[in-house]
C-alpha cells in the first residue's frame, strides 16, 4: 500500500512538472491567438488589446500559470479562445472517443500478438515463425501514415467501410444495435491501422521472452513429469515470461495513444488528435495544455498499471 501511495505522489509530481513545461513551451512560442485578429484591419488595436487583457495575455507567465491552476481546481482547465468555453468539457468529449479507440486497439493488439509470439517461439525456425517474422519486418518498415493512407485508399475505392468519422449522419434515430454496428464499422479502420502498426514490436518481444523461457530448467522438469506440450506453453512458459511483457504492456498503452492521435487526424475520428492539431495551429493555449496533460496522464497511468500488474504477477518482487 505504501508503495502505491509513493508511486501516486511521484505521478502527481510528474504531472505538475509536465504542466509547467507544457505551459512554458506553448506560451513562449511566438504568437498568440489574437495575432490573426491583429492582422485584420477591420478590428481596432484597442479591441485586440482589450481582449488580450481580458484573457490575461499581457500578464507575466507565472501569473498566468497561477490563474490556470486556479481554474484547474475549479475543474475547468482554462478557457478555449476558439470555442469560447472552458476547456474541460470540450476535452472530455474527445477524450472519450480517443479512449474508445486506444483501449480497443491495445486489447486487440495484445490478443493477436500473444498467440503469434508464443507459437513463433515454440516453432522457432519453422515456416510459421518465418512467416510471422517476415510479415513483422514488412510492417515495421512501413510508416504508420503510409499504412493509414493506403488503407484509406482501399476503403474509399471499395466502399466496404465508411472512410472516416465516427458515426454516420442520422444514426441517432436508429435502434441501439444498429447504432453499435455503425460505430463498429467506423472504428474498424483506425483500430486496424493501430493494431497492425503495433504488431511488430509486440510479437518480437513476446517471441523472444517466451523463447528464452523455453530453455529454463523448470520447463524440462515439468516435461519430465508428463505435463502436456500445450499446457507447458501456456501455463508454464508464458507466465514465466510475463515480466518484460507486462512492462511492455504499460509502455504500449502510451505508444498506442501517441499513434492514435495521428491516425485520428487521417481518418477524421473525432478524438483528441484533430482537436489538438486545430488548437496548436490557432494558438489556443489552454486547449493545447489540456491535450498535453491528457497524454501525460495516460502515459503515467499506463506505467503505473504495469507496475501494479508486475507486483501482482510476480511474487518474487518486493516493494522495498
Amino acid at each position: 500500500m505504501r508503495y502505491l501511495a509513493r508511486r501516486l505522489a511521484h505521478a502527481l509530481l510528474l504531472l505538475g512538472g509536465a504542466s509547467v513545461l507544457a505551459f512554458l513551451f506553448t506560451a513562449l512560442a511566438p504568437g498568440n491567438y489574437f495575432d490573426e485578429m491583429r492582422l485584420n484591419p477591420q478590428i481596432s488595436q484597442e479591441t485586440v488589446a482589450a481582449l488580450k487583457a481580458h484573457y490575461d495575455l499581457d500578464k507575466p507567465l507565472a501569473a498566468r500559470y497561477a490563474v490556470w491552476l486556479k481554474s484547474l481546481a475549479h475543474g475547468e482547465m482554462g478557457y478555449s479562445f476558439a470555442y469560447n468555453s472552458p476547456v474541460a468539457p470540450l476535452l472530455w468529449v474527445r477524450v472519450r472517443n480517443t479512449l474508445l479507440l486506444t483501449m480497443t486497439a491495445t486489447l486487440l493488439a495484445w490478443c493477436i500478438a500473444l498467440p503469434l509470439g508464443v507459437l513463433s517461439a515454440e516453432y522457432s525456425g519453422r515456416w510459421m515463425d518465418r512467416l510471422v517474422t517476415g510479415a513483422s519486418a514488412i510492417l515495421l518498415v512501413i510508416p504508420d501514415i503510409a499504412l493509414a493512407l493506403g488503407f484509406l485508399m482501399v476503403v474509399v475505392r471499395t466502399r466496404w467501410l465508411p472512410a472516416g468519422g465516427m458515426v454516420s449522419a442520422g444514426a441517432e434515430g436508429l435502434p441501439i444495435a444498429a447504432q453499435l454496428w455503425d460505430l463498429l464499422r467506423h472504428m474498424f479502420l483506425p483500430v486496424a491501422i493501430l493494431v497492425l502498426s503495433a504488431q511488430p514490436l509486440l510479437v518480437r518481444h513476446v517471441r523472444s521472452a517466451v523463447a528464452e523461457t523455453l530453455g529454463e530448467g523448470f520447463m524440462r522438469a515439468a516435461e519430465a513429469h508428463g505435463i502436456s506440450k500445450k499446457r507447458l506453453l501456456w501455463r508454464y512458459a508464458l507466465p514465466a515470461a510475463a515480466n518484460p511483457l507486462i512492462s511492455l504492456f504499460g509502455f504500449s498503452i502510451g505508444a498506442l495513444l501517441s499513434g492514435s492521435l495521428l491516425i485520428e487526424i487521417v481518418t477524421s475520428w473525432p478524438g483528441v488528435g484533430p482537436f489538438l492539431l486545430e488548437a496548436i495551429l490557432a494558438r489556443d493555449l489552454f486547449v493545447v495544455i489540456g491535450g498535453v496533460l491528457f497524454s501525460t496522464v495516460f502515459l503515467i497511468a499506463g506505467n503505473l498499471i504495469a507496475d501494479v500488474l508486475l507486483l501482482w504477477a510476480d511474487p518474487r518482487i518486493q516493494t522495498e
Binding site: 529454463e216 530448467g217 523448470f218 524440462r220 522438469a221 515439468a222 516435461e223 519430465a224 513429469h225 508428463g226 505435463i227 502436456s228 506440450k229 508454464y236 507466465p239 514465466a240 510475463a242 504477477a313 510476480d314 511474487p315 518474487r316
Partner: peptide
Amino acid sequence: ERLRGNRVSLIFQEPATALHPT
C-alpha cells in the same frame, strides 16, 4: 507424455531451477 511422471518419474539436479518461479 502419459507415462512420464505417471509410471516412471525423473528428477534432476538443480532444485533451484526445477520449479516454476511464480
